[in-house]
């Protein structure tokens, strides 16, 4: 019974952790959207900043991956 409670908590926690990925999605969308709106205003400068955009995507996406990792750890490793 006690194990079941732990398991239940772990699963609920995993589900909650997954909400973090939504935040990462918002972040990535924000980065790309702002890049695009800036790029359309000044297309000549956009080419040189693509790398910066990818770095920004990587940073904000990493946090989503962290929350995914937490979910996995709760499901499989706790």
């Amino acid at each position: 019974m006690e194990g079941d409670v732990v398991q239940m908590g772990a699963y609920i926690g995993a589900g909650l952790a997954c909400t973090g990925m939504g935040g990462a999605a918002v972040g990535v969308g924000h980065v790309v959207g702002n890049f695009l709106s800036g790029a359309l205003r000044n297309p000549s400068a956009a080419g040189g900043q693509t790398a910066t955009m990818f770095i920004g995507i990587a940073f904000s996406e990493a946090l989503g991956i962290f929350s995914f990792l937490v979910a996995l750890l709760l499901m499989f490793a706790v």
């Binding site: 990587a58 990493a62 991956i65 962290f66 995914f68 990792l69 996995l72």
Partner: peptide, 13 residues
Amino acid sequence: VSHSIRLAGNMMA
């Protein structure tokens, strides 16, 4: 940490 987990996490996910 983020450097390694980003790659592994993306692939795993």
